[in-house]
Design a binder for these strands. Structure first.
Lengths: 226, 226
DNA sequence: CGCGTCTTTGATGCAAGTCAATCGCCGTGG
DNA sequence: CCACGGCGATTGACTTGCATCAAAGACGCG
């Protein structure tokens, strides 16, 4: 881990992300003022379930995985955060205790903001409070989606869903690069890596080609039917 | 469905529940003023996924099940709400569209509060905003728990967890009545009713007796080990 | 080119969903 | 009071989807 100075590029990433976009620029700047930047490498642990956390985390680059571990040591991802996303925000309203483990999933630059400061701001500035509320609702919906997906869909269906979610809307055939390792995607979808692999094979006959991280979808409608 | 007048008992239920307890009584009264009360019977549908919703719902008695349906018609519960709980609050920050279906799971009395009014209040009154934020964080944690539970635990483990969550803390042996039908519990835990039934049998040898809705746990530590 | 890591493939086992039949409980009506 | 009917719960037999373990293959990087 290495601390860094925040560049103007970093500022732009943050002020452009979903959470900050709702806020006046001056408010965003105020929140970011005093943020601590650090470089982390893959497999670094940011915190563990039950730890006391006094910061909110912002991903400037790279990837962070939030997961819980079962009694038998198995891990289940409850969230994966990429550039421009923020996590750990709910702990500041839950006694400042982490509800999951956070592990860096690829070399990353991560900013921390003092959560007490942010909380006070949320209490005094209605804009900030509003931004939090919307952010939390959005997060809640995603978790609901995830749960429903887990309970209703088979592995190939989940993968098809994910692919469709990456589809620029309107296009019937498209191509993109997975933003992370397949094993990470597997975790995100609640699958073992082997299951993801098999799901991709199953989707091949519905017009999905996979070469390394490059994915090609020939007909999105075939996926929707799946 | 039959509309009713709100009684002082109803008021007490609501002002005593988690969400309103954070607020000054006068604020709670202001929110509740103008709430519409109605009696619903089992299997009534309150709304469907995608419907436009202009209310927030409060359960005064009975039970409501929130669920999504898959393409094949199978249903997956994403929430079950009992007396004193509130739902539908996130739709007002998500374009007023329901993200799931709501069905009354047993004869219930349900209040509705105009969500626009509530939203305005959240924007102008920092107490209300704060209450929402905490409520949403709490909700988020529960969903995270649910997801992790789905991915990490077997059916008997989930049931054991649920039983422990009902245990008055400190007691090693206890007894209680299920607050709803077993099939509802099954849905809540993401299981088919048959699987719940089998899970109960499996737990019998760990000191769990089931007679109708009455549950008796002889040794909570045996469950914790499970 | 060679090594390590990630991914794929194959074989096997297990947990839970499904379908179907039975049982138990409770309320109704004779 | 008992017989009946209906609904929910249980049990059994079967099927399926996925995890797991193990081995081979592909890819990226030095």
């Amino acid at each position: 881990m290495k601390t860094l100075q925040m560049t103007s590029i970093d500022r732009n990433i943050l002020t452009g992300c979903r959470f900050f976009k709702r806020l006046p620029l001056s408010t965003a700047e105020a929140i970011l003022h005093g943020a601590a930047l650090a470089e982390h490498e893959k497999y670094d642990s940011l915190f563990r379930q039950g730890d006391r956390i006094d910061d909110v985390f912002l991903v400037l680059s790279g990837l962070v995985r939030l997961y819980r571990v079962g009694k038998d040591g198995r891990e289940a991802d409850v969230g994966v955060f990429a550039k421009g996303e923020l996590f750990g925000e709910d702990t500041m309203f839950l006694g400042y205790r982490a509800t999951a483990n956070a592990e860096v999933a690829e070399n990353s630059v991560i900013a921390r903001v003092d959560s007490r400061k942010l909380r006070q701001l949320a209490a005094s500035d209605p804009d900030v409070a509003q931004a939090f509320i919307e952010h939390l609702c959005h997060r809640g919906k995603m978790k609901e989606d995830l749960l429903a997906q887990d309970r209703l869909l088979t592995a190939p269906q989940r993968v098809a869903n994910y692919l469709l979610s990456q589809c620029p809307n309107g296009s019937t055939s498209f191509c993109f690069r997975l933003p992370f390792q397949k094993s990470v995607l597997a975790g995100k979808l609640g699958l073992a890596p082997e299951a993801l692999s098999r799901a991709f094979s199953a989707l091949r006959e519905s017009g999905v080609s996979v070469k390394g991280r490059m994915i090609e979808i020939h007909d999105r409608h075939a996926l929707e039917r799946f």
